[in-house]
């Protein structure tokens, strides 16, 4: 998965998509995932990073990450593969 380039995100969770003019509001975990995506990490790498940092079980994390990525895709924020 790759985030569209030029998408700007602030530390406070405000995200702006310059292609569409839409704005988004993310929580901390969401911001973190976006940063990982911007850095070009794979889903597996992101899962590993988060697992190490947070108190969460593997399956919930996996379920949540794929749901989040599905939302990014729904909002058309990902590069088409």
């Amino acid at each position: 998965m790759k985030l569209k380039s030029n998408i700007a995100i602030s530390e406070n969770g405000f995200m702006f998509d310059p292609y569409t003019g839409d704005s988004y509001n993310l929580n901390n975990t969401g911001v973190e995932i976006i940063k990982h995506l911007k850095a070009g990490k794979t889903n597996e790498e992101i899962l590993a990073e988060l697992k190490q940092k947070y108190d969460v079980d593997d399956l919930s994390l996996e379920q949540n990450l794929y749901d989040f990525i599905a939302m990014l895709s729904h909002y058309d924020l990902l590069e088409n593969a």
């Binding site: 406070n12 405000f14 704005s23 509001n25």
Partner: peptide
């Protein structure tokens, strides 16, 4: 957009 960001967040 920065004003909008400040108000929204």
């Amino acid at each position: 957009i920065s004003q909008f960001e400040q108000l929204s967040m």
